[in-house]
């Protein structure tokens, strides 16, 4: 494996780890809010969060490039403040990945949260547990599987993304070149053995990750809707 490949692997892991951490910070309150929401706007908000699931990554990447670049709203504001714009930078990749993987963090958490029995929360509040206390000492332990699924899926999804990182990252070796764009480069230069090594690595990694998620959620058909079991199990 070439030094550029090792760089790409390191950058990919770094990107996935940072994006997952940020995603969990954003997704936790967002998913809780969505799961507790009664408003008729809820489907609209849920659709917004799910949008990256169906939008072609190039569309997302294009909009992000335009807004993060020097002529865009975000990029020009940063430059006016004396900072660098975010297109073709690692920070830009992180922002792109967070947006792109948002549904993979929010949906498992939201499903898990919505299956926490209401009466348990009510019982806790009769014992004067404050909302934050209830969340961290009751909801989080009950929805552990939701957290693990969200973490693993966001991490894996970030590792596998291509369209967004190619658009906003520019595929610069050692800076914004990740595994998937390195594979693309190998294929274009007809270095099939190089492409093969990285591709096989990604394939095995993805298989292991998915097997992990399924074994953690054993007994349920859908990985997105399987966190209720643990909540019920602990309730008994």
């Amino acid at each position: 494996m070439s030094p550029a490949d090792l760089d790409a692997i390191f950058i990919t892991l770094k990107l996935a780890l940072i994006s997952t951490a940020i995603l969990m910070l954003i997704a936790m309150p967002l998913a809780w809010w969505l799961s507790q929401m009664q408003s008729r706007w809820r489907p609209f908000l849920e659709a917004t969060v799910a949008l990256p699931l169906v939008l072609p990554p190039t569309v997302l990447g294009f909009y992000m490039l335009v807004s993060l670049g020097p002529q865009g709203v975000v990029g020009s504001t940063l430059e006016a403040l004396g900072m660098q714009h975010l297109a073709f930078s690692f920070a830009g990749l992180v922002i792109g990945s967070v947006v792109y993987s948002l549904p993979f963090a929010v949906q498992p958490l939201q499903n898990a949260f919505s299956q926490v029995p209401r009466d348990l929360l009510d019982a806790a509040s009769t014992m004067r547990a404050k909302p934050l206390d209830r969340f961290f000492n009751l909801v989080v332990p009950l929805t552990k599987h939701g957290f693990i699924t969200a973490c693993v899926l966001s991490f894996a999804h970030t590792i596998g993304e291509f369209g967004v990182v190619l658009m906003i990252g520019g595929n610069i070796p050692g800076e914004t070149q990740v595994i998937s764009t390195a594979i693309y480069d190998h294929v274009e230069s007809l270095n099939y053995s190089g492409a093969n090594k990285l591709s096989l690595g990604l394939l095995v990694f993805s298989l292991v990750v998915l097997a992990m998620v399924y074994s953690l959620n054993r007994g349920a058909g859908n990985m997105f809707a399987s966190q209720g079991r643990s909540a019920k199990g602990q309730q008994e």
Partner: peptide, 20 residues
């Protein structure tokens, strides 16, 4: 020295959006 290869049009697009 690092080189990024691509179609000239795509590279031009990236350069006009501030690619380093």
């Amino acid at each position: 020295i690092r080189v990024v290869y691509g179609s000239s049009g795509r590279l031009y697009g990236q350069l006009s959006h501030g690619a380093p």
